[in-house]
Design a protein around this nucleic acid. Structure first.
Lengths: 168, 168
DNA sequence: AGCAATTGTTGTCGTCAACAACAATCTTCC
DNA sequence: GGAAGATTGTTGTTGACGACAACAATTGCT
């Protein structure tokens, strides 16, 4: 019933190299997504995959991943935050933030300072080195953002940001 | 700078309960995201997290996850595809698709049929049971999609789909 | 003082993307 | 016709990540 064979047959296929046109269609362009095209989640998943890969590649020379960048940025903009506050603000599990900070602290980008007012918590700060490093990360991240703009268009990117602002 | 956004505050916060407003700010609403607000990747990550959680919850009664749903849908719409074709079309690693199909085949939703024309590959088909099950999955997925619509708005959802169409 | 809540931490579990290697099979090219 | 190279499915490993559960130390509330 589903089926929907005989799709639009865009016969632009320059012949894929495998001449087994008999039983199997492995020509990507001809495979229909059916209900998936109406699902925002599918598009978002593919987009996020692309965007994260580009981010990682663009910042590969400094070896910073998206989550690390978000943590550094928030700490840089709000010195003295507790781990709990950072975790809640970014939607990261506080258990996960522990390893994240361990790594960043080993690289001398962040330091945990024992809070005087609450001996349970740590006040998070960038090191001097972390501060200058973050500035470089931000320049590279801006380059990545330009890649996004080139990919989906300037106006579309801004609309996207506006639509998804309620999740940030 | 940044800050604000006046979030909808779903957490029913009747006063945060911790009165240590001294040195640490753990009030989520007051923590600025700085450069993150201009990054599409951050918004997309948060959005995808939300959307996947809603999908999983909405389809929890049938125990189907987003990736499984995408595989079933594509196979249902294109019977006889090889694993390689499905993997390429959905952007899934073919190694990963093996386990995915193992699981779906155990649940009698999918069957691998040895291809006559290419003895390396399998032709993928839904079982009769898988076909009726997929119809139910699609109804639940439609309900999930309505949740998305309620969250970001009907017009915004359609714009989103249009903007990200180049990734599907 | 006593009890509940919070903070950081450790640990486990399952999902997922990215690779690498392999046997079986197919294609291509000589 | 046969060797060389590519493709398909498979197995395995690695690392990032989200979700949970438990714990000690500490704090807040009553």
């Amino acid at each position: 019933m589903t089926a929907s064979l005989a799709r639009t047959d865009t016969s632009t296929s320059p012949r894929k190299r495998a001449g087994n046109g008999a039983a199997l269609r492995d020509d990507v362009d001809e495979i229909g997504l059916d209900a998936l095209v109406g699902h925002a989640g599918y598009a978002v998943r593919r987009f996020q995959l692309w965007i994260f890969q580009d981010f990682i590649k663009t910042l590969s020379e400094v070896d910073i991943r998206p989550t690390q960048y978000s943590v550094l940025t928030v700490i840089g903009a709000n010195p003295g935050l507790s781990q709990m506050a950072v975790a809640k603000r970014l939607g990261i599990e506080r258990a996960r933030l522990v390893h994240l900070l361990d790594s960043l602290e080993q690289r001398r980008l962040v330091k945990r300072i024992k809070s005087k007012t609450d001996r349970r918590s740590h006040a998070l700060h960038l090191t001097a080195q972390g501060d200058t490093a973050l500035a470089r990360f931000k320049r590279l991240a801006a380059a990545h953002e330009r890649h996004v703009e080139e990919k989906i268009g300037k106006a579309n990117r801004e609309q996207l940001l506006q639509i998804l602002a309620c999740f940030t």
